[in-house]
Design a protein around this nucleic acid. Structure first.
Lengths: 332, 332
DNA sequence: TACATTTGTGTAAGCGCTTTCATCGCTAAT
DNA sequence: ATTAGCGATGAAAGCGCTTACACAAATGTA
């Protein structure tokens, strides 16, 4: 990996400018010269140094992405969508997970120096640093975060679907609800979901936190909740993983879902369909979130767009078995 | 992000060499000069260009990783372990997913040009390219692949644990087996598992392929298998995800697991513990695989080691409910 | 006081490319 | 036959850093 353009040029008996032109197809090169150059390239197995190219071009041809963790399907799916599109656009993807990291600021600044633009999940990055990145002119796309100036934002609709979900559940006749997996930060996805359901259910719902949004934490919290005296009729979970935990907790306690308690999730991860009972949830276009982030970043980087977009992708209520049979839909 | 070391030098009234020395702590700098430089750095908000640094240092301070896909917990877990350690060692991680990609060769060569070393999963990369990478002197660590010269290899033990698993199942008294998720490539993990169980079970086991190693594919294949005339007594699956699919298929067909048919997985992903019945499986240290890959690569890159290591991590049989109660262990 | 070290700094040569600009044959038009 | 114009090429100036080397000033030693 260390033969340079100079050696190629020497071997082909031309200047490095000609080699460069031949390889990139910029500027005219005589057919015979091209042959010689390509032959030399072939023989020496030359690949232009990415560093040299980037330095000269003034761009990295790479995108960064910052997420808290990769546990669970949500971030993974978004990442896949992101990487796929970035790759399509000729950009590599540099990842950074912030979970359990000290000196996140340094890591992110380093990352920012290696890429042409950054996608950042929700509130992964401290606000002062966000402000600084904006000030420095770093191209930014936030995923699942409220709009801010100086960056694109991209998220899924939460409030309206939360209301729809809540309304659907009241249609079942439930009257006592718990929101499992209380929001950790204001303005994030879960917070919006919480606000949405509360707007419909008001005092009929109370929030119970989990340590994290994982199956395990959902299981623990649900077990305690369902084992208590005032068991709710329906548990609206912050996301599918917490809901899967709740399903397991109910089973362990010998409770029937949805007979004894209804459970709903959010995201529609693959396991939601496979759970027993299959999980009623809200589908969120995770891959598309990633894909769009990569596209948005590309527009910002290439300069195809110089204003900032704030997009909200639509979600869909997916009714399965875990919320029970809806009275109106019941067969006679 | 475009203030250079020259501007800092000018503002501080020193040469760029002094700025560099101050920032990196190489060479002596008078206290007063240091102050001036740091002040200028602060005021201008200077961050050294990664490109400039890399070009001058002759290293990227970045590692690559190539995987087929990120669907399912296996690759994700390995990736997390890898990223964590790489980051600890001051290296960024550049990812490349090959699934569905044409021109994989170009992508990988490009990747190789952006990093100091590459971790590659199993048989993600065509053999001729592997040979070429080795020839070019690219630092390589393969994850879950048989040893080859010119690269480190790292994998989990498969054959012995497969034998142990098979032996355990025969202890249950089962006599007709199916291996669900037949190997796609020779010498990969699944192939070794298959060879391991066959060594014990011989003609008593037959292999049935799935399209991919996913829940869905496992579900489809298991449904067909279990719906057929000669239903096996036990299904040994290539991995946990296929096994989860098999569990669902059994449920859909009204079959009891392990009563009507035993099912086992491989990997011990989180869902294995949560499945009903909980899945008997073989635990594979996925994060550690990633972590070790990052460490090995670091040794190769820094030159701390110039031979190649071929490591096999140990696995552990995890007996849960899906294989039935073992006769000897049965309570009176 | 004279000389050998250290300290502190600057100069300049890379690192491997891309690209502008100038040059030099040619062909085509006058 | 002249000249404008084009095609093909090379020289050289960056791109933003690190660092070997040179040198002057300050310090220590005899």
């Amino acid at each position: 990996m260390d033969v340079t353009i100079y050696e190629v040029a020497k071997r082909a008996g031309v200047s490095i400018a000609t080699v460069s032109r031949t390889l990139r197809g910029t500027g005219p090169v005589a057919a015979r010269t091209r042959e010689k150059v390509l032959k030399a390239v072939e023989e020496l197995n030359f690949t232009p140094s990415r560093l040299g190219v980037s330095l000269a071009e003034g761009r990295h041809a790479a995108n960064g992405i910052v997420f808290p963790d990769l546990a669970g399907p949500y971030y993974t799916e978004v990442l896949l969508g992101y990487e796929e599109v970035a790759s399509e656009l000729g950009r590599s993807v540099v990842i950074l997970s912030t979970k359990g990291r000290t000196k996140v600021n340094d890591l992110i600044k380093d990352l920012a120096g290696r890429v042409d633009g950054l996608a950042i999940f929700g509130h992964t990055v401290p606000e002062p640093l966000v402000a600084e990145l904006v000030r420095l002119g770093v191209r930014l796309v936030f995923i699942s975060r409220e709009p801010l100036s100086g960056a694109d934002t991209l998220r899924s609709e939460n409030i309206a679907s939360a209301r729809a979900l809540a309304a659907h559940l009241t249609g079942h006749g439930y009257e006592r609800f718990t929101f499992l997996g209380a929001p950790l930060a204001s303005q994030d996805d879960v917070d919006e979901r919480w606000r949405g359901v509360r707007a419909v259910l008001g005092g009929a719902i109370e929030a119970v936190p989990t340590r994290e949004y994982t199956v395990d934490c959902g299981f623990d919290a649900a077990k305690q909740l369902l084992g208590g005296r005032a068991r709710p009729e329906a548990i609206i979970c912050s996301d599918d993983e917490v809901a899967l935990g709740a399903l397991l907790a109910a089973e362990e306690l010998g409770l029937d879902v949805p007979g004894d308690v209804a459970v709903t999730g959010w995201d529609d991860i693959m396991a939601a369909r496979h759970a027993r009972p299959a999980l009623t949830t809200v589908r969120q276009p995770m891959r598309e979130l990633g894909a769009r982030a990569a596209r948005a970043l590309d527009e910002l980087i290439t300069g195809a767009r110089d204003t900032h977009k704030h997009l909200i992708l639509t979600t869909a209520l997916v009714v399965r078995d875990s919320c029970g049979h809806h009275p109106q839909e019941a067969a006679p």
